[in-house]
């Protein structure tokens, strides 16, 4: 049975200001959804609220994942349910090598708490060596040098390297539903292709994604099943891939006018 992320009439405020004004959307495993929209329309707010950033306050509506309301859950509890967010601006963590971090995260997701990621049990040794191999493969897939596993998490990574590292993390942690927040921004065309191919590789009955983007180019590779347009904190139009081309041809203005017209009425 497919897992479903159900967003129902979601209102979200940041520091008292309402950004999302009633978003309703269902994302199932096996589906790729895309959300497009102009700057400031609330796309990233949606991504961060879904993952549970403490600054983003849900004031109305609910988020159900696998039938459970997750609004009150901590981000790590959401992650353990199978949710993942590829950050628009991945954070830098000094002194924590990417590989060690991912091993700790993987173990945390498997229910073993050990934040330093140091192997200290023999039972770990086998799992660890498998993990290392897997990490190497995934880095190859994203065309990242192996040495990145030893480098501190995102520290000194270029913009594009950070984004690709997010997708490596996604591959290792294997979420059921992934939210990609402008993963394609700041990537050159080759990198966009690499990232899109890596996402496509996960595509299947056990994986769904919500891809937030400004641009159609990543969607040309991803071919989303559903496309939504968000304007001023609401989804104003949903359709299939053809909507991408319509937006490409016409821009957002016509939708903005339409939205305003509706609001006046």
């Amino acid at each position: 049975m497919a897992s479903v992320l159900e967003i129902k009439d979601l209102h979200v405020s940041v520091e008292g200001k309402e950004i999302l004004k009633g978003v309703t959307l269902n994302v199932k495993t096996g589906e790729i959804h895309s959300i497009m929209g102009p700057n400031g329309s609330g796309k990233s707010t949606l991504a961060l609220a879904l993952m549970g950033h403490p600054k983003y306050e849900v004031t109305q509506g609910e988020i159900l994942f696998k039938g459970q309301n997750i609004v009150e859950l901590e981000p790590n509890e959401r992650a353990r349910l199978g949710l993942f967010l590829a950050f628009q601006y991945p954070l830098e963590i000094q002194g924590v090598p990417l590989g060690r971090f991912l091993w700790a995260a993987k173990k945390a997701l498997m229910g073993q708490s050990q934040a330093d990621g140091q192997p200290d049990k023999k039972a770990d040794a086998k799992a660890l060596s498998e993990f290392r191999k897997q990490l190497q493969e995934k880095m190859k897939l994203l065309k990242m040098d192996e040495s990145f596993a030893q480098r501190y998490l995102n520290v000194g990574f270029s913009g594009g390297e950070k984004k690709r590292a997010e997708i490596v993390q996604m591959h290792i942690l294997k979420p059921e539903i992934a939210i990609l927040d402008e993963t394609d921004s700041g990537l050159d065309i080759d990198s966009v292709k690499i990232v899109a191919e890596a996402v496509n590789q996960l595509r299947g009955p056990d994986f769904g994604a919500l891809v937030i983007t400004h641009y159609q180019r990543i969607l040309n590779f991803l071919k989303p099943d559903y496309v939504h347009v968000m304007i001023d904190g609401r989804i104003v139009r949903s359709g299939d891939e053809s909507l991408v081309h319509e937006l490409e041809a016409k821009g957002y203005d016509w939708l903005i006018h339409e939205t305003k017209a509706k609001a006046v009425r």
Binding site: M51, G52, H53, P54, K55, E74, P75, N76, R78, A79, R80, F84, L85, F87, P90, L91, I93, Q94, G95, V96, F101, L102, A104, A105, K106, A108, L109, S113, A115, D116, Y152, L153, Q169, L173
Partner: peptide
């Protein structure tokens, strides 16, 4: 930063694990 904690928590670490990890990273030298 709250954002650093959130980032690590979004990967499955608890808040105290995330904080530990940042502190240990700080002590890495």
């Amino acid at each position: 930063g709250d954002d650093q904690i959130f980032y690590l928590m979004s990967r499955g670490l608890s808040e105290s694990e995330a904080l530990s990890m940042i502190v240990l990273g700080f002590m890495e030298p």
